[in-house]
Design a protein around this nucleic acid. Structure first.
Lengths: 175, 175
DNA sequence: CTATCTATTGTTAGCGC
DNA sequence: GGCGCTAACAATAGATA
């Protein structure tokens, strides 16, 4: 049984390709979930594929919209400076230009607040500027986060209930 | 040398958290690159973190913009139908109680909007109503929320450990 | 803080059903 | 088409430089 030895190249066979996609998509989303849980970072992902009629979104549509909005609001320079090159996963060092831009943004915070407020009044959604840090904490994301956390806690509570109840339900991990 | 056995829970220690983040971000992007190469699918990711002043984008800014544009053009229904969220990883079933709660909160949305707006004008921070779905958010810093969540998760983890026999356990549900 | 090492845990390719 | 299995390979926590 030659189990594995696949080179990193486009899979021609459609059947194999779909199987690989299905498996790896699950793995990818799991990894995303883990880094979110472990580090509390804010992230979003969109995956298009010929195998799903509509794209999959993580962690949620609402959260993704917020992430996208913030992304859209960044300057071109900001975005390019932190762009991750697909060919080489080289994380660029934080340039002084970045820091200057951040400072400028902070200075403009009050202006942004006003703008955001108007948008809020118009569409009922708002991007909250970071509270003094460069952490782009988005209130709406926190909203989603809180909900998701609730879901998570519920699952944990449910598991505890199962354990305490002495149920014969199989709890073994299959992660 | 206790090499490894880490619970899937928020890492309190900032040093460890950052290390984990750095490593896993690299791994995540690699995985994304692989699934893109192997299956030729179209995907994008944005990662915010307190460790980088601006978000990281994969596979590229241009590619991400394209993905975003497509996402924006989808109808709400389309997006929701294929939404993948954290709940799917931590909880198989969404309880009816959750849905009822959400409905109630939705009904109160307009009231919340007004309240939130006043608070926004006063302190520059705002509770953002969900786009008609989620509970009102606390405009707290992400770190604060993460800390609180961590406290609870740790207590639950300890409890699970005791119940399961004292050994380390994973609390993440498999899908 | 960054880089490297390596024992362990985690992911998944190829099968069989 | 999907699901489950498990050997083989990959990712990474903790230690070290």
């Amino acid at each position: 049984m030659t189990r594995r030895k696949v080179k990193l190249a486009f899979i021609v066979n459609n059947s194999s390709k779909k199987k690989t996609y299905k498996k790896r998509k699950r793995g990818l989303l799991k990894k995303a979930h883990e880094i979110f849980t472990l580090c509390g970072i804010n992230a979003g992902a969109i995956i298009y594929s010929p195998y799903d009629p509509t794209p999959e979104v993580w962690p949620s549509v609402e959260g993704m919209n917020q992430v996208i909005t913030t992304f859209r609001n960044l300057t071109e320079i900001d975005r390019h400076n932190n762009m991750v090159n697909q060919q080489e996963f080289v994380q660029q060092r934080i340039t002084k230009a970045d820091k200057l831009l951040l400072k400028k943004k902070k200075d403009n915070r009050e202006v942004n607040l006003t703008e955001d407020m108007y948008r809020f009044l118009q569409i009922g959604q708002l991007t909250i500027p970071a509270g003094g840090h460069n952490n782009p904490a988005l209130a709406k994301d926190l909203n989603d986060l809180g909900y998701l956390v609730d879901q998570y806690l519920n699952s944990l509570n449910r598991r505890i209930q199962i354990l305490e109840g002495g149920s014969d339900v199989e709890i073994g991990e299959s992660l």
